[in-house]
């Protein structure tokens, strides 16, 4: 601590400590703890808070599992179904995202000339200057019944009747895939960038095909970047709200939409908090499990 102060001077040191503690304590720890605590409390008017009725309870978690606060006779197929559906699709989207971004990242990192690489990175970033909600609406316009894609396909004579992309959730999956593409590309790019180009040439010289070189040399080298990108895309996709609200079909519910409903429409904050805790903890456990299976350490991911 003394060394830290001596090195950075008193002014910068104090600023750093205050800024980091504010971020960590007020923006992360306290809201999460509050949410966690809230999820175990009954939904009672604020006047009764701290009164005799304000006791710790598991009713919200019970409701998530059984659809009722009291009986455990039948499962809450709707909510649990939405939950697993959300996770499953988030996993799928993460995988599609990986397959889509891997060649792009590799091209930028190892194939393109420095100038082309810069140009490509800029053209990847610029669309993200536009707000996420607007981008989702733009996709909605593209995919709408009378939208650009349907009109184009009809004009070209490839289809006879318009396709309902929204109902088929094509629009939703496209939107979710696109929403966090940068968070996949950049960790991949960072990891691949450090790979010595001679390694690729050595592999080729030794008779390796393109595909084998990727599986034996590039992917093992970029493993941490792949894990980092997948983790971020999975977490953010599972927790996305704006894109599903705009692009999902009337029959598809994203789990975050349920959380949103409990908070806003049904005015049941404790239940919303409980649903959030479920989503967060299951997602974290899933990610940790995956990291263990693929033998990636947390330290490598943040490197």
């Amino acid at each position: 601590m003394k060394y830290f102060f001596n090195k950075n001077g008193p002014l910068i040191s104090t600023y750093l400590i205050i800024a980091i503690s504010f971020w960590f304590v007020f923006l992360i720890i306290i809201p999460q703890l509050y949410m966690f605590d809230l999820s175990f409390r009954p939904n009672i008017p604020s006047l009764l808070r701290g009164g005799p009725d304000d006791v710790y309870t598991l009713i919200h978690y019970k409701h998530f599992l059984f659809g009722s606060q009291t009986s455990g006779e039948s499962y809450n197929y709707v909510d649990v179904g939405v939950f697993f559906n959300t996770l499953l699709i988030a996993i799928l989207i993460t995988l599609i995202n990986l397959c889509f971004c891997y060649p792009i990242a590799f091209y930028i990192a190892k194939v393109a000339s420095p100038n082309t690489a810069r140009l490509l990175i800029v053209s990847l970033i610029i669309p993200f200057w536009i707000n996420e909600l607007l981008r989702s609406f733009a996709l909605r316009i593209l995919f709408a019944g009378e939208g650009f894609i349907n009109n184009a396909l009809l004009k070209l004579g490839l289809i006879d009747n318009g396709i309902n992309f929204i109902a088929m959730d094509v629009a939703l999956y496209t939107g979710l895939n696109y929403a966090y593409i940068l968070l996949m590309i950049f960790p991949l790019y960072n990891a691949m960038e450090t790979l010595d180009k001679n390694q690729l040439e050595a592999a080729e010289d030794l008779g390796s095909s393109m595909l084998k070189t990727h599986f034996r040399i590039v992917i093992p080298h970029a493993k941490a970047g792949i894990a980092s990108g997948c983790t971020m895309v999975f977490m953010l996709t599972a927790g996305a709200l704006a894109t599903p609200v705009v692009l999902s079909s009337p029959n598809t519910f994203w789990f975050t939409q349920l959380i949103y409903q409990w908070f806003n429409m049904n005015d049941n904050w404790p239940r919303g908090a409980a649903y959030s805790v479920v989503l967060l903890s299951v997602s974290v456990v899933f990610v940790l499990l995956m990291m263990r299976i693929f033998k990636v350490k947390i330290g490598e991911i943040v490197r």
Partner: peptide, 18 residues
């Protein structure tokens, strides 16, 4: 290069570290 009867030793050797 993968089809030629040649083998190249690189200046930095380019051994596979993993």
């Amino acid at each position: 290069p993968n089809k030629r009867p040649t083998s190249l030793i690189f200046q930095n050797l380019a051994l596979f570290p993993l």
